[in-house]
Design a protein around this nucleic acid. Structure first.
Lengths: 239, 239
DNA sequence: CCAAAAGTGTTGCTCGTACACCCATGA
DNA sequence: TCATGGGTGTACGAGCAACACTTTTGG
């Protein structure tokens, strides 16, 4: 978590370049939800990503949250800054800070008066080129993070079956995964807790319901394969 | 990694007052070089990271490259956008786009009239809080990328011995690595090519010299210049 | 009793890690 | 001949991928 709090005492900031117009600032958010059978992207009714200029007294993160509330009338479960683009526009430059946001299904069920349209991720067409790139990139990041974080849990209801979770993974990754391996890995990871409840639906064996062990994610995993050698250096190997 | 869970209740910030001051934009660069025995960070003589406001007609990447040239009178071998911070400052907001830059030793040898001071990475003290965070984060990213990219090659001379390369890794990672495993991995990875030259220095067996197989790195793992990089996005910037 | 999804183990392979000694050289 | 760093191979364990059948239920 990156945290910027107090204003700095350092007054190093260069003056805005000689009379030239200030760049336009815009925060845009690639929002996803799991629709039960597929991943969906949120667009405004005008086929753009939800976006707005941050207010002067507002952090970028806060602006992203506000944009999500304004468009969807709900809060996202997960929010992460992705990348900052810039491009020439009219007489000034436009700087676009892109975010990735995730909704849980419960959240998006009772959206009323929402200005959001949902379309299948991957088939979402955006007029704006930068927004298109930002969306593609958000998907890439989301896929990558499935592999080494518990980010998928933000897309899934509070309690869920392992099959549901697996379907979520498969649909985001775009390929099937082995059931036994998937379950073993999920359970071994310790981020799942079995509730004692079951869900019975249809004429087949009921499924056990699980929930997350911890709701804060430690997605800050970085794993360099190189590992410390036994001792500092001094002798040849101990033994 | 930013995880925003339960955002505050709606404050419904006032509409974008047209008279409100634009945010200040600033690009700052965490620059590293390998000094032969340690990793070093570049600071301005005033103990700040090299930074400046981008010109209106200049992309963020171009601004970062210009800043590096202005401060060091040389070009960096590697440049990657890291994260965008924002903070309140005086009457307006300051938005800081941070970059990671790497120099090869050859490059920094003939810096003359440079406005850069080098200090050991990790021991570099910066007055500004955001710059400090940006620098720390750059180090984290650099370390992490050692594990799954060939980023280290940007820090090393055009030809080098495996021991030199290993020292670079060890010093950046902060721990020793096993010599045999390191060499096996490097050679197996295929990004190294053995030249036929040797380097003899000191009273011991001469070392074989290697160089990179390909000089473009696919470490564009975590940056959006994704699939169709430069040409598919005429109005945005490549990397 | 049938359909339909839930649930369960084993095996082989790959990759990472630990580990010790000989080689070539200059002084 | 000695000190110094360069260079080499093997064996073990962890973790991942492939793979098929039994269980429980509703209709």
């Amino acid at each position: 978590m990156i945290h910027v709090s107090a204003p700095s005492t350092n007054e190093q900031t260069p003056a805005p370049a000689s009379g030239a117009p200030h760049p336009t600032l815009r925060v845009c958010v690639a929002l996803f939800r799991w629709a039960g059978d597929r991943l969906e992207t949120a667009t405004s009714l005008a086929h753009t990503l939800p976006s707005d200029a941050p207010f002067p007294d507002e952090s970028l993160d806060a602006a992203a949250r506000r944009i999500i509330r304004d468009f969807g009338h709900v809060d996202a479960q997960y929010l992460e800054q992705l990348y900052t683009f810039s491009r020439p526009q009219a007489d000034r430059r436009e700087v676009i800070i892109s975010y990735l946001g995730l909704f849980s299904p419960e959240t998006t069920n009772d959206i009323s008066g929402s200005r959001i349209a949902w379309s299948p991720a991957g088939a979402t067409m955006l007029a704006d080129e930068v927004e298109h790139i930002a969306l593609e990139y958000a998907l890439v990041r989301l896929r990558a993070k499935l592999g080494y974080t518990n980010i998928a849990f933000h897309l899934v209801p509070a309690t869920f079956t392992l099959s549901e979770l697996q379907q979520t993974y498969e649909s985001i990754l775009g390929h099937a995964v082995d059931k036994r391996n998937f379950r073993r890995r999920m359970i071994a990871s310790g981020i799942l807790t079995a509730t004692n409840e079951q869900r019975r639906e249809g004429s087949h064996r009921p499924a056990a319901l699980y929930r997350f062990t911890s709701h804060d994610d430690q997605s800050a995993y970085l794993t360099p394969p190189l590992v410390p050698a036994q001792d500092a250096q001094p002798s040849t190997e101990g033994a």
